[in-house]
């Protein structure tokens, strides 16, 4: 039975590894910055800076657990941001509804393109992001679209904290306990077998892309509140930040049964602390990027090789 507790040891390591990285990053920066990162206002700032990424990463867990990707998240945040800015001149709640609606619509299109027409998820969403970036350039004539001044007072931390907690807890409940979440993971673990267990694959995929679009819509709305205006490069590269955050949070790369919702929360926090800490230490742009690259590769190597070993053991055992 030796191989059994070896396997258990590795599984335990894989589960707690994201927590270790979070603690290491948190403590590391606290020491290096002489306690400045622990300052309340700074922590509030870290939360505010990673608020929108938390939303979209949460929704992305559903997609990645089905081994699907959405390369258009950044463009959707940009587009919904512009829509929110334009409509906010009329009235704010309508602006929120418009942003959500546009996000859901684009999500639906993505879902149909991949779920029904069967186009490869990456290519379909990459093309969609190309189209959306083009539309964005036209809508704001490659400049900025300002938001109504009244919208600024929406920018309190309390509101954001509430929205974030409600969204994350809701998503966690759905992912962990609802049959929809379980079906997502089953699709990721084995699509053909999932079909024969009565899972309507196209339906699950469309729902997940719509949910992703909705999250991007909300993120777009709050991004615009934070920056005061939507620009043609708003939300740029959000899809890659999501991917990095989820992997830092310990999410298996091709989804499946091991996917955990918490990897979104932990991953985004690690990324938030990292970005904030490096600026705090006055690191230049390029050293920052190199550090991010090194950490990403190390975490990747660690989790991927060990997870492979566990799976291989499972097959062989």
């Amino acid at each position: 039975m030796k191989s059994n507790n070896k396997k258990k040891g590795m599984e335990l390591f894989i589960n707690i590894f994201p927590f270790i990285s979070l603690i290491v990053v948190f403590v590391g920066f606290a020491l290096l910055s002489g306690g400045r990162t622990l300052d309340i206002t700074n922590c509030r700032k870290i939360f505010e800076q990673s608020f929108t990424l938390l939303l979209v990463a949460g929704a992305a867990v559903f997609l990645l657990s089905q081994n699907c990707l959405d390369m258009s998240v950044g463009a959707v945040i940009g587009m919904t941001g512009v829509v929110a800015a334009l409509v906010s001149k009329i009235n704010i709640p309508l602006a929120f509804a418009a942003a959500l609606g546009v996000g859901v619509l684009i999500g639906l299109i993505n879902g149909i393109l991949h779920g029904v027409l069967g186009i490869n998820a990456m290519i379909a969403t990459l093309a969609m992001s190309f189209i959306l970036r083009g539309l964005l350039l036209i809508v704001c004539k490659s400049g900025t679209v300002g938001i109504a001044v009244k919208m600024y007072d929406l920018d309190q931390v309390g509101l954001k904290m509430a929205v974030c907690v409600v969204f994350l807890v809701g998503a966690w409940l759905f992912f962990q306990f609802h049959s929809y979440g379980k079906q997502c993971r089953a699709v990721g673990a084995g699509e053909t077998a999932a079909v024969q267990s009565g899972i309507h694959i196209a339906f699950i995929k469309i729902i997940s892309y719509v949910f992703m679009g909705a999250a991007a819509g909300i993120a777009g709305f709050f991004t615009v509140i934070r920056t005061g205006a939507a620009m043609y490069n708003t939300g740029n590269m959000a899809e890659f930040d999501i991917l990095i955050a989820l992997i830092l949070g310990g999410m298996p790369i091709n989804g499946g049964a091991d996917s955990k919702f918490r990897s979104a929360v932990i991953g985004v926090l690690i990324l938030g602390i990292l970005n904030n800490g490096m600026v705090l230490l006055g690191l230049d742009t390029y050293p920052q990027l190199i550090t991010k690259g090194i950490i990403f590769i190390l975490v990747l190597a660690m989790t991927f090789t060990i997870r492979n070993k566990i799976n291989r053991d499972k097959k062989m055992a």
Partner: peptide, 18 residues
Amino acid sequence: TSLLVTASILVGMVGCGS
């Protein structure tokens, strides 16, 4: 491996020698 991770992050911060 856990030592490696801690070392790499700290080295990454200070070592880069901005």
